[in-house]
Design a protein around this nucleic acid. Structure first.
Lengths: 236, 236
DNA sequence: TTGCGCCATATGTCTATACATTCTAAGGTG
DNA sequence: CACCTTAGAATGTATAGACATATGGCGCAA
C-alpha cells in the first residue's frame, strides 16, 4: 500500500507521538518547516495536521502553532458490536429467538418509558441470543414508535431488533451502562443456568438528536461473554 | 458562531442524513453539483465530504460517487476513571488498603507474566478499594520493574498504585476487558459478601509503545459499581 | 448474445497563491 | 517597571487548475 504524501506526513507524526519521541505539550514543527522537510505545498501539510487534530492527537492554535495533545487518560474506545457479527467473529454460529412482541403504552409512573414513548406507543421486543445453540444473552428492548414507525412492519423473527435498528435507523447519541448482576429466576431459566449466576448487564439507550429511539437491557452469561475497550494503536 | 463554508456544507449534509432525509445507500450530489449549489470551489466541497467520510457518515467511491453509509456499530467512549476521583464524584469517602506488596519473578510458564516482566522482576500489588468504609473492589496488580523502576521506592500505603501510575507513567496503549464473574472464596471474604456474588471484573493492560507497563484485575462488587460509555455525534 | 475495450464520470491528490484571523513577543512610552 | 502598541508569525479558509486513478456503462466485435 503506497501512502499518499499527506498520509505519510500524518503517520510519521502519529508514530512520533505514540512512540514517545514527541511528548504531550511538545510543539510540532510549523507548517513551513514541514513543507521544507517533505518538499510539498502548505495545503498538503495542512491536510495532514488537520486530520491529526480531528483525531484528537494534536491541538492546533491559530497564531501559536501545533502541539501534541495530552492523552485523555481516562477515556477509551469501547466497541459496541452487532451481536450476530460479533458471535460469528468468535467462530460460533449465531441464533436468535423472538420471545415477546407487544405493542403497548408506557407503564404509568415509569418516567423512563414515558420519555421514550413520547406520548405514543412502545414496541416491546424480548428475545434470546444464541451462540452455537447455547443461550448467550437475554434481551429486553423497547422501541419508540414515535421515532421508528417503520419497525411495526419489520420482520423480527429471524433478525434481532438490534441489527434491524442498526441497519435502518441512524442515531446521534448513545449511552451504555455496564454492570454485573445475579440472574433472577426468569433470566436464569432462559439462559439455562442456576439462579444467581453472574451476568454482565448491558443497558443502552440511543437518541436521534434529543428524540429517544430505543432502550435495551441485555443480560449476558458472565462466563460466555466479555467487552473490550482500547486506547491507542487502533486508529483507522 | 459563524460557520466556515466547508463546515456549513458538512453540517447541512450531516443533518440531512441524521434526519433521515438522506437514507443509507442514497447517493449524494456529486462534487460539481455541490460547487454549483454553494458557489464555491471543488476543494471546499471536497474538504466537507472528506470530513464526513472520516467520521464514517458517508462512503466515497472513486469513480462512482459518494453514498450515505450504513449506520454501523459506532465505537463509544468509555470513561475509565481514577477510582478515588470517581468515588468522590459519587459522593462517597474513598479509602484504600494495601494488602500485598511483593517483589518477585514472573511465574514459570505464565506467558502473560513473562511478557510483562521482560526478563526482570515484577512488583505485585494487591489491595482493597473502599467507598464509605465498605469494600468496593479487590485489585490485583502487577507492575513491570523493567518499565517502571521508580515504583520500587513509591509510597503505596495510602495512594493506590493505579493513581500513582497515572501520575508518573505515561502510556500510549491500553486494553480493558470487562466481564462478569462469581466471587471466589478469597474475593468474597475480602469484599465481605457471600461466595458466588456477581462481580464486575475489569482487566486492564497498559503499554508504552510495545513495552508492557502493568496488568491489573479489579473485582467490583456487582451491586455497587457500574461503568458508563457514551457516544455523542457532537464534535468540537 | 456475450465479452472486451474504451471513455465519460467522479473522486484523490497536489500545487501555488491570496487574504483573514489570532497569538506572541519585541520595543517604545509613561 | 508596567502597560500599550505593533509587527511578524502561524494557522484558517478559500480559489482555480492540473493530473492521477478507479468505476461503470456503452458500443463494437466475435
Amino acid at each position: 500500500m503506497t501512502l499518499s504524501l499527506h498520509e505519510r506526513i500524518r503517520t510519521d507524526i502519529e508514530s512520533a507521538i505514540l512512540s514517545g519521541k514527541l511528548a504531550p505539550e511538545d510543539r510540532l514543527p510549523v507548517e513551513h518547516e514541514l513543507m521544507q522537510t517533505y518538499q510539498c505545498s502548505r495545503m498538503t501539510v495542512n491536510k495532514a495536521l488537520s486530520a491529526l487534530a480531528a483525531a484528537g492527537l494534536i491541538e492546533r492554535r491559530k497564531g501559536a502553532g501545533s502541539f501534541v495533545g495530552r492523552p485523555h487518560a481516562h477515556s477509551m474506545i469501547l466497541d459496541v458490536p452487532d451481536l450476530p457479527v460479533e458471535v460469528a467473529k468468535r467462530g460460533h454460529v449465531y441464533g436468535y429467538q423472538l420471545l415477546v412482541r407487544k405493542l403497548r403504552a408506557a407503564a404509568r409512573g415509569n418516567a423512563e418509558e414515558e420519555l421514550l414513548a413520547g406520548g405514543r406507543r412502545l414496541l416491546q421486543l424480548d428475545g434470546l441470543h444464541f451462540a452455537d445453540g447455547a443461550p448467550l444473552a437475554v434481551e429486553r428492548r423497547l422501541v419508540s414508535l414515535a421515532a421508528v414507525p417503520a419497525i411495526a412492519e419489520a420482520d423480527l423473527e429471524k433478525e434481532p431488533p438490534g441489527t434491524w435498528l442498526l441497519r435502518h435507523v441512524p442515531w446521534t447519541e448513545a449511552e451504555t451502562r455496564i454492570s454485573a448482576v445475579p440472574a433472577d429466576a426468569e433470566i436464569a431459566r432462559l439462559l439455562k443456568t442456576p439462579a444467581g449466576t453472574a451476568c454482565l448487564l448491558v443497558e443502552r439507550q440511543t437518541w436521534r438528536s434529543s428524540e429517544r429511539i430505543t432502550a435495551v437491557r441485555q443480560y449476558f452469561l458472565g462466563t460466555a461473554y466479555h467487552l473490550v475497550a482500547r486506547f491507542g494503536s487502533s486508529r483507522p
